[in-house]
Amino acid sequence: MISRRHFLIGGAGLLLPGCDRLDRNDTFKEGLRAAERLTMAAQRLVTDRHALAREYGPEDISPVFRPNGNVMPQSPDYARLAEGGFADWRLRVDGLVERSLSLSLAQIASMPRRTQTTRHDCVEGWSAIGRWTGVPLARLLDLAGLRESARFIVFHCMDRFGALPYYESIDLIDAFHPQTILAFGLNGRRLPIANGAPLRLRVERQLGYKHAKYLERIEAVASLEGVHGGRGGYWEDSNDYEWYAGI
């Protein structure tokens, strides 16, 4: 006897192996990836490069801001830094810059800061609203002085997935966006470890995996090709996520 379920499975069984096979076909995959570039171009076309993400009121803040990805970097170095309240932690800014920087948390916290209550959208579908305080990335990049050849900003992190360190990258349009900040505060308190202490990126017009946590180094590069897997981020290299995460 053929049940309805078996009938459906049989029907899908004809379609699905086809889709799965197509999904493994490099030419087809490249075709789908072309749509990703089209999406980025179209979104950049209709979005003013300084258009601000919506900022919310205090009453809109999520009761619990869900941490995601790594919530506690496993290295002994990180444990030691955390124990000392990140007093010994430094952020390096280097690569294609005129002056390399090495900044302590106190130095960063003493710079002109920006506080913004924004919505964090995970690629999985959930959203959380939090109030972030940090220093605009543009400020640090101006201090370091970007060289002409710099095209992307790479964020190197202290957490790992297995053997691979987390990292992310954005282009200069997002890097100099007024809401792109390096946050050390969440909801009026010091940034919790689960949310990326001591410092994390906020790049408000893209999905959550772009918002690198546990920062230790910011590098200006001309191309993403030489960086780790070459696709601009940990998830991009390991799981085929899109580099542009505007949708």
Partner: peptide
């Protein structure tokens, strides 16, 4: 279940790639 999804095994990245391309 796997018979209802593209791709049939779990891959958010691949699901999004199909979805956002065919959305055009």
């Amino acid at each position: 279940p796997s018979w209802a999804t593209i791709p049939s095994s779990y891959s958010l990245a691949a699901g999004r790639r199909w979805h956002l391309a065919f959305a055009w």
